[in-house]
């Protein structure tokens, strides 16, 4: 008995809307790391700092043996150590944006997933398949970016939010909530802004590269190389302590400004200009390289 046939037959259906069509793109991009052992390994590596923070948080809340010592230490900490105290905004923001804390994790995550997103489609001529479907190049870009943002955002914004919710749920009283609630919306918005800007830059760079490996290398060079440029500029211009050339630090400065975390050594205006100029120039290049007329050659 045939349960159901696989014969190709006429199909009546109501076409989905333009936005609904982007869902499979977003889903595919969000799940990109779950397709291989390497991807899952990368994701586990990238969430490992979150576990460290979680242990600190649980300890601070008295759920782990070293709670007392941690609370005593939190009473009077120097500013540089505030990023380890769960009732300080730095605990949630710096874990993502601080050079020593979040840079390497972010670089690995974006280099393995986000930077390859459009470049690998170009390398396999998949753009021809996409653009002869019911989506526009802009829709395709939005879908790809949002998928990449969802993945990276799960680690950056989702991580911070998860820590906060765990803290509220496991705390004995409302003290934790009362001390964190005033800054948490701003902190989450700062993380959101940081993730949006960085993933946008990364996907735009991916859109102008011919291969996934090239995109990964260029992204690493852009983040790492801009640090080198900043160091050189600081040497050349010793009087100007607010020189901003490192893309990572520029985005971190903007995030810190939003979250209300003190930022030193970088100017907010300079950071905004740098990020704006980079976004604009990469957008123009990406727009050119994603033209629909290039789909069929």
């Amino acid at each position: 008995m045939t349960v159901y046939g696989l014969e190709y037959r006429p199909k009546d259906y109501r076409p989905t809307s333009a936005w609904q069509r982007l869902r499979p793109l977003v889903r595919a991009e969000r799940n990109v790391l779950f397709r291989s052992k390497w991807g899952i390994g990368t994701l586990l590596f990238c969430v490992s700092p979150l576990f460290v923070r979680l242990v600190i948080l649980l300890g601070y809340l008295g759920l782990l043996p070293f709670a007392g010592r941690l609370r005593d230490a939190a009473e009077d900490v120097p500013p540089a150590m505030r990023m380890w105290i769960p009732t300080e905004v730095e605990f949630y923001v710096e874990q993502v944006v601080a050079m020593e804390q979040g840079f390497f994790v972010f670089l690995v995550l974006t280099a393995m997933a986000t930077a390859r997103t459009i470049a690998k489609d170009r390398a396999t001529n998949a753009l021809e398949l996409y653009w002869t479907r019911g989506i526009s190049p802009f829709g395709y870009f939005v879908g790809k970016w949002f998928g990449a943002f969802s993945l990276v955002g799960c680690v950056t914004v989702g991580g911070g939010l998860l820590l906060w919710l765990v803290g509220i749920l496991f705390a004995e009283d409302w003290t934790y909530f009362e001390s964190t609630a005033p800054f948490m919306p701003r902190a989450l918005f700062a993380l959101l802004t940081f993730t949006v800007v960085m993933t946008l830059l990364c996907v735009l760079l991916s859109a102008v590269c011919a291969s996934a490996n090239l995109a990964t290398i260029l992204w690493c060079l852009l983040l790492g190389g801009s640090f080198a440029v900043e160091i050189v500029l600081r040497e050349l211009l010793p009087g100007n302590r607010d020189t901003t050339a490192a893309i990572w630090e520029a985005a971190a400065t903007v995030a810190r400004a939003i979250a209300g975390v003190p930022y030193r050594g970088h100017s907010l205006e300079g950071s905004l200009w740098l990020l704006g100029a980079l976004l604009l120039s990469l957008s123009l290049l990406a727009r050119r390289s994603l033209r629909a007329t290039e789909a069929i050659q």
Partner: peptide, 24 residues
């Protein structure tokens, strides 16, 4: 041209392209 959606099986590729064409 030789083209495919990277990292996908034949089934995933065809169903994704179907959805992009407007299929629920």
């Amino acid at each position: 041209r030789d083209c495919h959606l990277p990292g996908m099986s034949g089934f995933e590729m065809v169903s994704m392209l179907g959805q992009l064409s407007g299929l629920p």
